[in-house]
C-alpha cells in the first residue's frame, strides 16, 4: 500500500538551487541478501529540517549512512550539492557535514572539552577562533558547567550532548558567516535526552535551519516531528511511501497505514502545524 503525497513547490530548478541540495537517485542497498533500501529517490534542501520516519528496520539509518558516505550503495547515486558524492574525499565531506550517530563508543577518559576539540580540529581554524567556537557549542549544548568533567563519568544524556557539541564544532561556521552549505545528520538525537534539552536543542535547530543549515534526522518521536519538521520522509521496508511537507505527510490515515500506530491528528491554527497525539486506545 503506497500513499503518494504530492510535492509542494515548483518542480523547475535553477542551478543555484541545485547547489544547495542533496539528490538521491534510485538508491538500492543490499546486504547479505537483505534488501535494505529499494529504489529510493528523494531530495533534501538546505535550510530545511527533514525528518525520516519509519518502523524499526525500515532503512532509515541505512539511508542516513549512505548520505554521509559511511556505506556505499549497491546501486543508484547521490548528488551532493551538484556533484556525485564519490567525488568528495572524506576530509572534504567532514568540513561540510556533521554526523551524530545513534550510539557512540569511547573507552578512554577525555574531558568534555578535549572531546569537543577533537571535532573542532577538523575545521582547522585559528587558535583564537577555535576557543570561541568551543565556548559557543558548550553553551549551546548546556555543557559549560561540565566542560572539565571526565567523559566516562557522564550520564547517557550528557554523553549525547557532548557528542552533539563535538559534531557542531566540526561544522560551526566561520566568524561572520552563516550555516549555508553545511549539513547536519542526526540519528535519533532525542534518545536519552531529557525534555528540557530536547526543546532547547530543537529551538536551536530551527534557528540554524533558518540560517541555511540543512538538517536530516531520523526520529521516532512523532509529536516532536510535528513541531520540528519542514518536510517528512516515510520509509517502509526500504521503500519511500510518503514524501512531502509536514502537513501533508503527518495525517492520521498515512501514519496508521505505514507506521501502524494509533494516532489522532489535529491542526494547530496558530502555528499552522499538525499536532499528533499517539494513543493507546
Amino acid at each position: 500500500m503506497v500513499v503518494r503525497v504530492p510535492l509542494n513547490g515548483s518542480p523547475t530548478l535553477c542551478n543555484d538551487a541545485q547547489l544547495r541540495m542533496i539528490e538521491v537517485h534510485n538508491l538500492c542497498v543490499v546486504r547479505e541478501n537483505q534488501v535494505l533500501l529499494n529504489q529510493v529517490s528523494c531530495e533534501f534542501e538546505a535550510g530545511n529540517i527533514h525528518v525520516i520516519l519509519g518502523q524499526n528496520g525500515a532503512g532509515k539509518s541505512t539511508l542516513l549512512n549512505c548520505l554521509s558516505h559511511e556505506i556505499t550503495p549497491t546501486k543508484g547515486q547521490i548528488i551532493w550539492q551538484g556533484q556525485p558524492l564519490e567525488h568528495y574525499s572524506y576530509a572534504q565531506l567532514a568540513k561540510e557535514r556533521g554526523v551524530l550517530s545513534q550510539s557512540n563508543e569511547l573507552a578512554f577518559s577525555f574531558t568534555v572539552q578535549a572531546l569537543i576539540s577533537l571535532g573542532e580540529e577538523v575545521a582547522q581554524r585559528s587558535k583564537k577562533h577555535a576557543e570561541k567556537v568551543i565556548a559557543t557549542v558548550l553553551e549551546v549544548c548546556d555543557l559549560t558547567s561540565l566542560q572539565h568533567r571526565d567523559y566516562l563519568t557522564l550520564s547517557g544524556g550528557e554523553k549525547k550532548r557532548t557528542h552533539l557539541a563535538r559534531v557542531l564544532a566540526q561544522i560551526w561556521p566561520e566568524e561572520g558567516e552563516c550555516f549555508s552549505g553545511k549539513w547536519l545528520f542526526l540519528d535519533e538525537w532525542t534518545a536519552s535526552l531529557d525534555i528540557k534539552h530536547q526543546q532547547r536543542l530543537g529551538r536551536y535547530l530551527k534557528q540554524w535551519a533558518n540560517q541555511g543549515l540543512g538538517i536530516i534526522m531520523v526520529l521516532h518521536d512523532i509529536t516532536l516531528t510535528a513541531q520540528l519538521a519542514d518536510r517528512c520522509l516515510l520509509l517502509s521496508s526500504g521503500k519511500i511511501v510518503a514524501d512531502g511537507g509536514v502537513c501533508n505527510v503527518l495525517q492520521a490515515p498515512v501514519l496508521q497505514q505505514t507506521l501502524e500506530m494509533s494516532v489522532r491528528v489535529d491542526m494547530d491554527e496558530n502555528t499552522n502545524r499538525p499536532v499528533v497525539y499517539p494513543t493507546l486506545f
Binding site: S68, H69, E70, S89, Y90, A91, Q92, L93, A94, K95, G98, V99, S101, N104, E105, L106, A107, F108, L118, G119, E121, V122, V167, Q170
Partner: peptide, 20 residues
C-alpha cells in the same frame, strides 16, 4: 596521532570526521 584520536571514537566516527 590525529587520526588515532578520531579512531578512539569508532571507525564510523573517524570516517565522519574525515579520516579513512
Amino acid at each position: 596521532v590525529k587520526p588515532m584520536n578520531a579512531f578512539l571514537l569508532g571507525e564510523r566516527v573517524s570516517l565522519q570526521m574525515g579520516y579513512a
